[in-house]
Each structure stands twice: as structure tokens, then as C-alpha cells.
């Protein structure tokens, strides 16, 4: 299985744990990820708050740079995923808009044929292309006893309805059940982490984060699993901020789902980026899945 891969800016540094664990897990599963040559930032939610056509052109440059032999592009970040998918979609349904975007691309000697690249999130690829059998047969350390709250956030499951259920998505739940983790019902699994609100409006951001942390605690989760760098950063790095703001005592490790998959596959901890999370995950893993952790530490 070979896909074009758009890592996105966060994976370069602040979410290196995601990048490392994606690489390790995909290597093991026989998924080849060919990084788009010289990709640029997707503009997050910021660029199209100021400029619509430029935002689309900046995003479309990446689609245009996808190797001609590949037809599927995998993005691991929710914002990158949605931006790439949305630009392709809007160009496909509106030829006049596509011409405008392409006129801008032409200034850089590029062209994108709408619909040529299918944009997918990594969780879809692992869930649907690798599938249950493919995941189950790789499990060396079943994660029985580890209670995980699967967190999807917003932009992977909305507004487009073809990825998963927009209200109560289940793909990450299923993926985690295949490695025998105990998936807790997580009512806020598709609610918002606040995105950039942590930067611009603390009160709003902290309240949104508090709801997610409270809901996970109420569900008895040991860890929250994310599939987006921004969600991970907000829940992890601002958790102590939430605690001082509300007088709460949350201490819930926030891991990328690929880190936990890797643990179940028996991959070494150092290949999975553990230790980069600010709320430490190792103590709870040692307590709940000692055998898996011992195996991963030995590797």
C-alpha cells in the first residue's frame, strides 16, 4: 500500500511523537508513505479568515505537487486534512473557481486537476484499508486493562460526512478494540478542543478543554487518544492551565492513537515518541499494561 503523505507543520517539531509513531506503525503494517516534495503549510484556519482565493491556492499547491503516480494523499492532522479535502471538493464542484485557483497556480508553473487526488485521514486508512484482520494479526501486546477515551475532534468528521458519523464517530473506537484496549464511551468525542482559542481567548478555550477532560474522567479513562496535533497540544500543554483556572485536578495523559497502536504491536518506546507528552503517560501505562510497557522498554 503506497500513499502520498502530507505531514503538516506540527509534525516537524511540536508533534514529533505523532510523526515518529506514524512512521513506526506504518512501516510495520507495510504502508509506504511518500512525503509530498517541498510541501507548504495548509494555512490552518487562519489563512482563509483573511484571504479566500490565496488560501485555496496555497493549499492547492500541495495537491498539485502530489506525485503523478499516486492518487491518494494521507494527512494526519485534522486541519490539514480538511483544508486539502475542502479545496479539492470546492474545485471539483465549481469549475469557475477551479480555473481561478489554477490561474494562480500557473504563476508557479503548476496545475491541479480537481478530483485527481483523494484526500484521506490516517485513521481511515488504518481502519478501512488495513482493516480488522490486518491490525489484529500484528498485535503482540494486547492492551487489556487500559481504558482509552477516543477523541476525534471536529474537522476529521465534519463537515464532510463520508469519513465517519458526524455526531458519534466509531472508527477509532473500533481500531482500539482490535488491539484489545478497553474503549470507554466518550460522549464528547467529537466536540471541539477550541483550536486557536488557547491563543486568543483563554476563558473560552479553557472551558472547552475542561468539558473534554471532565467527560474523560467521568468515563473512567486512563488516557485520551487524539488523532490531531492541535487537539493533543491543547489538551496536554494547557491541562495545567485548565487546572489553575478552574481549581480542578485533571491529570490525564493525552497520547496520539498511533503511539498506543505501536505499543500493542510491541514496538520499542523510543520509536513511538513517548516522553514528549507534558502530562506523563508512562506511570499509568506501567500500572495498567505492565507487560506491554516492559516489552516496549526492552526493545
Amino acid at each position: 500500500m503506497k500513499y502520498a503523505f502530507y505531514p503538516g507543520c506540527s509534525l516537524e517539531c511540536s508533534s514529533a511523537a505523532y510523526a515518529q509513531s506514524i512512521a513506526a506503525v506504518c512501516r510495520l503494517l507495510g504502508i509506504e508513505l511518500a512525503e509530498v516534495e517541498d510541501w507548504n503549510c495548509c494555512g490552518a484556519t487562519e489563512y482563509h479568515s483573511l484571504h479566500r482565493l490565496t488560501a485555496a491556492a496555497v493549499i492547492a499547491r500541495n495537491l498539485a505537487l502530489v506525485d503523478g503516480s499516486l492518487t491518494e494523499l494521507v494527512a494526519p492532522c485534522a486541519a490539514c486534512f480538511l483544508n486539502l479535502k475542502k479545496v479539492d471538493h470546492q474545485m471539483s464542484e465549481d469549475p469557475a473557481w477551479a480555473s481561478k485557483v489554477n490561474a494562480a497556480l500557473a504563476a508557479g508553473g503548476l496545475m491541479y486537476e480537481p478530483g485527481r487526488v483523494k484526500v484521506r485521514h490516517l485513521v481511515e486508512v488504518l481502519h478501512s484499508d488495513v482493516g480488522e484482520e490486518g491490525i489484529r494479526r500484528r498485535v503482540k501486546q494486547p492492551l487489556r486493562g487500559l481504558k482509552v477515551a477516543p477523541y476525534y475532534g471536529c474537522q476529521i468528521v465534519r463537515p464532510y460526512k463520508d469519513v465517519d458519523n458526524t455526531e458519534y464517530p466509531m472508527k477509532l473506537d473500533e481500531l482500539m478494540s482490535w488491539v484489545e484496549a478497553e474503549v470507554v464511551p466518550y460522549p464528547t468525542k467529537a466536540a471541539c478542543c477550541g483550536g486557536h482559542m488557547t491563543q486568543i481567548s483563554e476563558a473560552q478555550a479553557y472551558e472547552l478543554l475542561r468539558r473534554l477532560l471532565q467527560s474523560a474522567e467521568d468515563a473512567g479513562a486512563d488516557v485520551i487518544l487524539t488523532m490531531c496535533p492541535m487537539c493533543q497540544l491543547n489538551l496536554d500543554a494547557y491541562q495545567s492551565g485548565v487546572n489553575s483556572y478552574f481549581g480542578t485536578k485533571f491529570r490525564i495523559p493525552i497520547l496520539f492513537f498511533t503511539q498506543v497502536l505501536g505499543l500493542a504491536f510491541g514496538l520499542p518506546l523510543k520509536q513511538l515518541g513517548f516522553g514528549k507528552e507534558i502530562v506523563a503517560a508512562i506511570p499509568i501505562l506501567k500500572q495498567k499494561v505492565p507487560a506491554a510497557l516492559a516489552a516496549a522498554s526492552a526493545g
Binding site: 482565493l53 490565496t54 481561478k100 490561474a103 494562480a104 497556480l105 504563476a107
Partner: peptide
């Protein structure tokens, strides 16, 4: 590309 898009 950005400059062209801003113009258009």
C-alpha cells in the same frame, strides 16, 4: 502563486 492569487 500567492501574488497572483492576491491580484485575482
Amino acid at each position: 502563486i500567492i501574488q497572483k492569487a492576491r491580484e485575482l
